[in-house]
Design a protein around this nucleic acid. Structure first.
Lengths: 355, 355
DNA sequence: GTGAATGTTTGCATCGATGCAAGAGCGGGC
DNA sequence: GCCCGCTCTTGCATCGATGCAAACATTCAC
């Protein structure tokens, strides 16, 4: 910048004024500086700006596994929303390592980012208890410390919606696939329970199958074990996310079980892959755009407020929709076409998120 | 840091020495400073360090679409490799916008990252012509400016390997699905041509189907059109990436065409989804770990060399493997199990990358 | 006891930008 | 003719860390 100033014959400060769009610069000077800027190929050093001004224009997003489609699509939505605000997203993949997550909660990304969005598998309670001194919003995870602001769908309601749909299809022996140590898993189990209880399903038909993590492989293995077991077959599988459902579908197919004829399948996430599954997968579609938008807004509000740290959480949940596809239709007369979010509007009933 | 220095009764410089692990600090002092560090909850300001030292510890990775599984898995591999070196990855999603890519090539991420990894859909020739003044490595894209260093598989060889495999299975009317404006598309088409020519397939059976982009939807639509057309059915589809293949599989299934019985399908990428497709998809698996590792090494070398900019490219290609699954086996006697990379070693023949 | 060698600590300048407030130039009102 | 107010431009200090080299302390050899 000093070079540019010399080249244009003005002070460093004036160059800064031109670059940052300060209004009181004469057109002549502005033009001359601009020319020098171009000629010398000046590039702003964002670090220096960040150091002086305290704001970097970065927002950090930490997710457990970038290669998991749900998180990739979430990241994409955040990047898109951030671009609209002129903000660059710095993505970090924690690998689900709670040590890394702890480090982030402890402020490991402060100074380099104006705010942090954390999508943790499980927020350790003791970490959730402390009040961070930087803008922070949790994505998805919920319920542990309501002290931390959070954006996500109502997991209980989402699970209940899926199970109610399966009940509507005449299923009575529904497996809940995916309980693990996570809070999300607990809540989705709870939604499953509520739906069954409301429908007065006999307790002998309540089946909760645990898994280690929410991957295709775990879904495949769990269903394989289920089919090899001695108990009566279920007539539906409610998978806690699409990856588990995809694995379940493959296992059912491998065992020659017809879907949805013998077993209906539905889950939560509605990743792109779901519409191309075999058969196309019924799933809950969280509104990722709204989630991303709201999360960034919360960060901005925190940054603007004096105390800088996360304030009391706004507890309203993000909206979601149930996207019904062939995998859960017991009387399959729907066309066997991949139906995206807009492709089958008549089949998509509104979710109950947002309240 | 100043606060810590006062609290511990030492100079700022000594605190810096402790933090950065400078060897000549007496144990007593080190302990005292460390205690103050913990007590005051000191956090390093990476911006300031980066400003002073010129190295930030960040590497930028720009990909077109994070939500595309291939790029998500590539990003995951880069993050993992970077973590081993104590480097943090800053991921940017360009949205395939060539304007954004141009901005990155022009140095939009310099100063904030020590190096840039760019996975561009199409590198504009005029942008590839200039010599960047910062460490830069291209991922995947290839052939335009051999001046820019690049890491990726040999697309021609990969495509040839797939088509040879389909020919081995007895296929003679093979569709190449995925030509578009990209250099990658051109090269994969070339590999297809080479394989057919070597096998003396009659020109009437050479079918190249263009698409707009390499997505499931484009694959679905293109195959739909193909099946609705009047020409004789192909007996194999070689899709240029897994997304196209997944779309193709769905279209074939929707039309009641048996895979691999009537039409074999194979492609390139071997994303996790491929092993769970219906039927499990034969695909070329590029060694993403090697690609990521090599790309970071190239960045380091550039950073170490005096001229700082990318030097002449090391033109050796990254290794890949052909992972054979059910979708391409004309006599399907393989178990209908999702076979991951390690799951079916006997079926996986070595690729010819790396030479 | 003296000088050298090694080990430990410190001060100062600096990276590149911006916040702040003052200085320079100029036209108009009374 | 003087002062006020406005526009445009500038100098200086500063953000938080590190490079450099000097200063100080301690030990050792002769």
């Amino acid at each position: 910048m000093r070079d540019v100033a010399e080249h244009a014959g003005v002070s460093v400060r004036t160059v800064s004024n031109v670059v940052s769009g300060y209004p009181h610069v004469s057109p002549a000077t502005r033009a001359r500086v601009q020319r020098s800027l171009d000629e010398l190929g000046y590039r702003m050093d964002y670090l220096a700006r960040g150091l002086r001004s305290g704001r970097t224009g970065f927002v950090a997003l930490a997710v457990p596994f970038l290669a998991e489609p749900y998180f990739a699509e979430l990241a994409q939505a955040v990047v898109k929303a951030a671009a609209r605000r002129g903000v660059t997203v710095l993505i970090e993949s924690t690998g689900g390592d709670s040590e890394v997550e702890r480090r982030i909660l402890a402020g490991g990304l402060t100074n380099v980012a104006d705010g942090v969005l954390l999508s943790a598998l499980t927020v350790p309670p003791e970490a959730a208890a402390v009040q961070p001194d930087f803008p922070l919003v949790l994505l998805g995870e919920h319920g542990v410390g309501d002290r931390l602001p959070r954006v996500g769908i109502d997991n209980v309601a989402a699970a209940r919606t899926v199970v109610e749909h399966l009940l509507d299809q005449g299923c009575r022996r529904i497996v809940a696939l995916g309980r693990n140590g996570s809070e999300n898993g607990r809540q989705r189990t709870e939604g499953y329970r509520q739906a069954l209880a409301a429908a007065r399903v006999r307790p002998v038909n309540w089946l909760v199958v645990p898994v280690d993590d929410w991957t295709r492989k775990q879904g495949y293995d769990a269903v394989r074990r289920l089919l090899d077991g001695s108990g009566p077959l279920p007539d539906a599988v409610f998978a806690f996310n699409d990856a588990l459902a995809i694995g379940a579908l493959r296992a059912l197919d491998a065992s020659g079980v017809r879907v949805p004829g013998e077993v209906a399948v539905a889950s939560i996430d509605d990743v792109q892959e779901a519409a191309y599954a075999h058969p196309p997968l019924t799933s809950i579609a969280p509104d990722l755009d709204v989630i991303a938008e709201r999360a960034l807004t919360l960060l901005e509000e925190q940054a603007a407020s004096q105390d800088a740290g996360p304030a009391g959480s706004a507890p309203d949940a993000a909206p979601f929709r149930l996207v019904v596809r062939e995998s859960s239709l017991r009387a399959p007369n729907a066309p066997n076409v991949p139906s995206g979010r807009e492709a089958s509007p008549r089949l998509a009933s509104a979710g109950e998120g947002g309240q």
